[in-house]
């Protein structure tokens, strides 16, 4: 077979190029092209969960103490959480290098 960059053949591609497996976006680590990441100041945080609601990649999850922490494998650094936080508790910090 000729060398190809394809990850799937046109004959085996799902019907209509649909994604048939629900929730499989968890397999795609969207965090690797981030240029900045959120850092939460727990002094200011009131645990309202707005960051968790607004994050488009559902990177946030709640800690046992009730704070919200973003998973860096999925956080793409868009800054929406920092923008939406009612207490300005989130700062976007540029990635090193």
């Amino acid at each position: 077979m000729a060398i190809s960059d394809a990850i799937i053949g046109w004959k085996t591609l799902p019907f209509g190029c649909h994604v048939m497996e629900p929730g499989n976006s968890a397999k795609f680590r969207t965090g690797d092209w981030r240029s900045q990441h959120p850092v939460t100041d727990r002094e200011k945080c009131i645990k309202c969960g707005m960051c968790w609601i607004f994050c488009p990649d559902m990177a946030y999850s709640q800690t046992l103490e009730g704070y919200y922490e973003a998973n860096m494998e999925y956080c793409k650094g868009c800054g929406i959480c920092a923008h939406e936080c009612p207490k300005d508790a989130i700062t976007m910090v540029p990635e090193e290098g």
């Binding site: 960059d5 394809a6 799937i8 046109w10 190029c17 649909h18 994604v19």
Partner: peptide, 23 residues
């Protein structure tokens, strides 16, 4: 029975998707 329709076709898939449609 959830499915996603109309996802992104990355370069590793786009040609195959076009080929499948054309065929």
């Amino acid at each position: 029975k959830p499915v996603s329709m109309g996802p992104v076709g990355v370069p590793e898939v786009y040609t195959e998707a076009k080929m499948a449609h054309n065929e």
